[in-house]
Design a binder for these strands. Structure first.
Ligand SMILES: NC(=O)c1ccc[n+]([C@@H]2O[C@H](COP(=O)([O-])OP(=O)(O)OC[C@H]3O[C@@H](n4cnc5c(N)ncnc54)[C@H](O)[C@@H]3O)[C@@H](O)[C@H]2O)c1
Ligand SMILES: NC(=O)c1ccc[n+]([C@@H]2O[C@H](COP(=O)([O-])OP(=O)(O)OC[C@H]3O[C@@H](n4cnc5c(N)ncnc54)[C@H](O)[C@@H]3O)[C@@H](O)[C@H]2O)c1
Lengths: 255, 255
DNA sequence: CAATCTTTGTGCACGCGTTCACAAAGGCAT
DNA sequence: ATGCCTTTGTGAACGCGTGCACAAAGATTG
């Protein structure tokens, strides 16, 4: 997903399917909420509803971790929180660095959701000399010249890239050379990394374009006569479009 | 996706597989770069490399759009840019609203990548009265009381939610009631929406947890004796962990 | 015009992920 | 202790997505 799905060639890691791994954080979030309300046990049906998934899927997912449920009762919330946390590696502390402290990088630095799951921002790094030493989210910004040393000293294995697209590959190379083996990339760039390094990408622009595709299809459906299922603010916009995007004949031919 | 994948029950929209739709923006980005360099044609092999995918996959993806290539030559870049843009609905203008102008919402408002693909920020909306009227990214912040009117007047069909998790469902409900039919959700909340409304989610925390899982697995592999494939800054951290996470016997039993 | 070379478009097989449906397991009431 | 009721854990079937491999198509060269 972001989704980002472009990494390891689906090597089942210790038998846990990639799709399951991607859902574990979802379950963990729902379970944490239950735990805070002191709910002792939960059935697969309830938990699945809270996480927004099918209950059979949830049970199968948990079956990869082992048999942690009790038939007729459900799952012990606290125990499951612990098991999933352990499986995801959240029982240990993960120092991360953020490279590129602009709009997005600063927002991420201010984000509380980091620390709440064992991710600690070890450093904020930027190439702009005028940024060096500035305080962002209560932390001084380091210069990119010190990148390697910061990685080494803090034992950082996860890097977040929020530089402009043009600098992303270069920053990525330096991170990897310094020892980072997992990268979360927000820049609109396809990163090339050596084997053994994981990259996940988050691309807002892609998400919007996917939404636009479905939006257009819905608008076309409405025009085609299928009654609207939902009141739509954009209906007038769709009606205004004279040439539907459903045209069978391309409007332009290749040069 | 961020790969959010939790929406429509895989209803093939006009015969184009969901996985293909998710890749079209990737191709479009690569093609746009080629177009700016005035490259006239490109082979599936070259384009696939630029987009970071398998060339057979790319050709199959394009085959869903029609036969736009020329055997022995490749694809006409300009023509393909147009066809994919049309398919994704980017030939029209999509007004969007951002609700929740905090750290992240402000960063998104400042993001140039919006406008470059036909997405226009129609309004910034926040519940905090002290935000109302303030300038963010050269645009005045509107109060959430005016949400419905803004949606109606601008014909907005896409909404971006960057409020705290607790407010997300409520904001979502108002957006949908006002006519929004596509939502991009950054809050760590499972949104419930009526049929016909698309939701995609971007969750930084989930992405990091997935990376942590693989990171832990890599560390465990190294300890198990498989020689390190990549120099790793976190190696000393892994070595420091006395009790490996590979333990067969759970350390804690349910209460 | 014919031979050759390049590259597309796709048939096919395989594997992963999802979902149904149900037997087995365990709690609980009587 | 026995029977009932709830819920798990999983076998099996199915559908989607991926990638190989190749025939067909068209450009290009002589
Ligand atoms: N702002 C958003 O909402 C948003 C959304 C999605 C994606 N993105 C992407 O995220 C990235 C950052 O966006 P932004 O709006 O924060 O941009 P920005 O220009 O505000 O910030 C970029 C920062 O990176 C720093 N930088 C540049 N080159 C560097 C290098 N080689 N090493 C270290 N730091 C370097 C710059 O000094 C700057 O501070 C861009 O690639 C953008 O496309 C942004
Ligand atoms: N900051 C990040 O980098 C980041 C990363 C990932 C996810 N998130 C998520 O994005 C959301 C926003 O994060 P943030 O750091 O920008 O938080 P923030 O507190 O800085 O901003 C939230 C904004 O939403 C506004 N708001 C609250 N209730 C509202 C309502 N009912 N209607 C309209 N506006 C309302 C607040 O006034 C505030 O301005 C959170 O859910 C967070 O978990 C943030």
């Amino acid at each position: 997903m972001a989704t980002g799905r472009n990494h390891r060639p689906a090597t089942r890691s210790r038998g846990i399917p990639e799709a399951t791994v991607a859902r574990l954080p979802l379950y963990l979030r729902a379970l944490t909420a239950l735990s805070e309300r002191s709910v002792p046990t939960v059935s697969s049906e309830e938990l699945a509803a809270a996480a927004g998934v099918n209950s059979a899927k949830l049970r199968k997912d948990f079956s990869y971790l082992g048999s942690y449920g009790t038939r007729g009762v459900g799952y012990d919330v606290e125990y499951l929180v612990y098991q999933i946390s352990r499986e995801l590696g959240l029982t240990q502390d993960w120092p991360v660095v953020i490279v590129g402290i602009g709009n997005l990088g600063a927002a991420l630095a201010n984000y509380g959701g980091f620390a709440s799951r064992g991710f600690r921002v070890a450093a904020l790094i930027d190439a702009d000399p005028s940024m060096t030493g500035k305080q962002v989210a209560g932390m001084g910004v380091s210069h990119v010249d010190d990148l390697e040393e910061i990685i080494q000293v803090n034992g950082v294995s996860i890097g977040v890239i929020t530089t402009p697209g043009g600098a992303a590959q270069q920053v990525c190379d330096r991170l990897v050379a310094a020892g980072v083996t997992s990268i979360l990339n927000f820049a609109p760039t396809v990163l090339t990394v050596p084997e053994g390094v994981d990259v996940r990408k988050v691309d807002l622009s892609i998400e919007l374009q996917i939404l636009a595709f479905h939006e257009q299809r819905k608008a076309a459906d409405e025009l085609a006569g299928n009654g609207a299922r939902v009141p739509t603010a954009a209906r007038r916009r769709a009606a205004r479009a004279d040439e539907g995007p459903e045209g069978d004949i391309p409007a332009v031919m290749p040069a």
